[in-house]
Design a protein around this nucleic acid. Sequence first.
DNA 1: TACCTCCACGTTTTT
DNA 2: CGTGGAGGTA
Length: 740
Amino acid sequence: MNSSLLDGLNPPQLEAVTLPDVSALILAGAGSGKTRVLTTRIAYLIQSRRVSPSGLLAVTFTNKAAREMLTRLSAMLPINTRGMWIGTFHGLCNRLLRAHHREAALPQSFQILDSSDQLSMVKRVMKSMNLDDEKFPPRQVQWFIANNKEHGLRASAVDTTDDFSRRMNEVYELYDQQCQREGVVDFAELLLRAFELLSRNEILREHYRARFHHILVDEFQDTNKLQYGWLRLLAGRDNFVFAVGDDDQSVYRFRGAEPGNMFGFDRDFPGARVIKLEQNYRSHGNILDAANALISHNRTRLGKNLWTAEGSGEQLRVYEAPSDLDEARYIVDEVRNLRAEGMRSTDIALLYRSNAQSRVLEHALFGAGLSYRVYGGLRFFERQEIKHALAYLRLIANPEDDGALLRVINFPTRGIGARSIESLQESATVHGTSLWQTACSNPPGGKAGASIGTFVRLIEGLRNSVTGLPLAEIVEAVVGGSTLKDHYQTERDGAERIENLDELVNAAATFNSEDLYDPAAPDGGAVDPNDPLAMLNAFLAHAALEAGEHQAGAGEDALQLMTVHSSKGLEFHAVFVSGMEEGLFPHENSLNEEDGLEEERRLMYVALTRARRRLYLTYAQSRMLHGQTRYHIRSRFFDEIPEQLLKRVNAVPQRSALGGMSSFGGFGRSSGGGGGNSLASSVAASASGWRVGQNVTHPKFGAGVIVNAEGRGADARVQVNFRDAGVKWLALEYAKLSAA
DNA sequence: TACCTCCACGTTTTT
DNA sequence: CGTGGAGGTA
């Protein structure tokens, strides 16, 4: 039994899985069996080391990762995973706070704000302060609040240095007060509140410390300061943290991730072991060599080199397109070829640095009749109609939730306009009560008051009618009774919204209380499926914490389109990385940021290591961006990959723009590939040392940029758009052009 | 209240 | 170019 568990592990994997009681940092390279090691470690602890499943805490970054861990674990062990604390940081903190809501000073039915709810709340608070949202962009204030919370800082602890941040901090303070009044918490608050609860409350802290001797963390490089503090707090001196991560795949620094948590691990956990998993089971050698070479240009690294027992495989295919349209056309052609060879579409990924780049690709794919799926769109629980229905439900669960009330008090419209709402808010401020209480006891007079009375009776009627009903019937009654469906019936594209509302009822019906309910759990964190209110709260928390798969329509054989960020953790047989241009990838904004280029390089490393067998890197000389054609040179990342690993498939010999020989100098073989006249132009221009998009100066015409080229050798001519002199064709042999 | 037009903006994003 | 938000008008 035990041996089968460990069968097939390589020596470092085996060492990691069977470590004694110590803290450990597992540096797991891309495709090195990270998830396998993590889950096998859990299984090993339970089976061989007789650790009780309830004595383990495993924390991930995403719900998907948590689900996968649970699935794999139940396949490995004949145990009930229900009582186990495996989940996301936010999910586990929610669980903790529900179980100890009194100690955490929260109402039992506290609700969770997602980012858009949080933004509305910020706007509302700023409005009450009469803060100019021109001068203080709400998004920036929202970021300020979240960022401070993620550093463990309450408003009272924020060190404000200037008037601007002092003012934002005032919003922060009032925002927190308002959340507290309403009984709502934002995402960062879940973590901070749980952290403070355990810091302050010694009894609880010791209870959980005594319980969780083993704490396992996935994607450790993505943890922020607060999450790290939370881990350390729970670990105390006597427990063991098993952290798995890859500093080379840290690409969320912009969102608060502190890869530095990895670098300080052995300082904070004295005696911690460090194990590197460097054998890659995913990619062929050339792909890994390219990735290794690229990432070696980063200075801030723990240091790791992937290797594979497989052969070198193919070279990386590099395609230079005259334009983004040609690039898309080439990709479509190649996809067709791959499919003709029998590759499934789902095994092919089209990656890009930023979402805006998907449009051209989608257009080309659509035109070619190839089915594709774009990741990163609007998610189920974020849809307008779903948020509305959830707001009705939230209001029933917790009437103090002003945000929920404001969302639906006049949706569908019932004659409560901006003025009525404003006077309601004023009255609430005067009386120091929630909007709901004000609407009940101190409604404004006149017609507005009458409409508000109708709304109050609607909500009360709904609340009474669903008391004691099972979850699905509650949701069904509210979706129906709210007249949301009737409203969408009259809308032009309301049919899909109605479908989604029906889908919400289904989601409630299949909402799995089993995952949450463990009768044997020693703490009170379990949700009793027979307690309708508890189930409703759990469902609403689920809606906020797990916004749902991006889109339906999964399952069918479709190409996978996504940003490089979204591709982290996935793998594909063939991968196209498009838009490999300076300014796009690395993104121009990153160049001004501290460590920005290194993060871009890590991102590129992620992109390269997604591919198992075939990897395409494509770029375009010209690209439509923000409504105008822009000219970029190919990404510097090409220069960081050894030449012999690259194969230029459209054989454009090219000298670099700055005059030196490019890393492609040795390629001259001609093969297929799209392109038309403009391709010929690019050949002409680049062969002569000039390229489209290059800035030049002319002794007579002054400064300009090359916009086109034709001919070769003595006939080569370039078209230059001069700042002052307009567009002119110049023969290269005679014109005294120089690079600017 | 609803619709329309104009303007600003444009990296990555989970919970 | 395309979108989303804001503000103005019917």
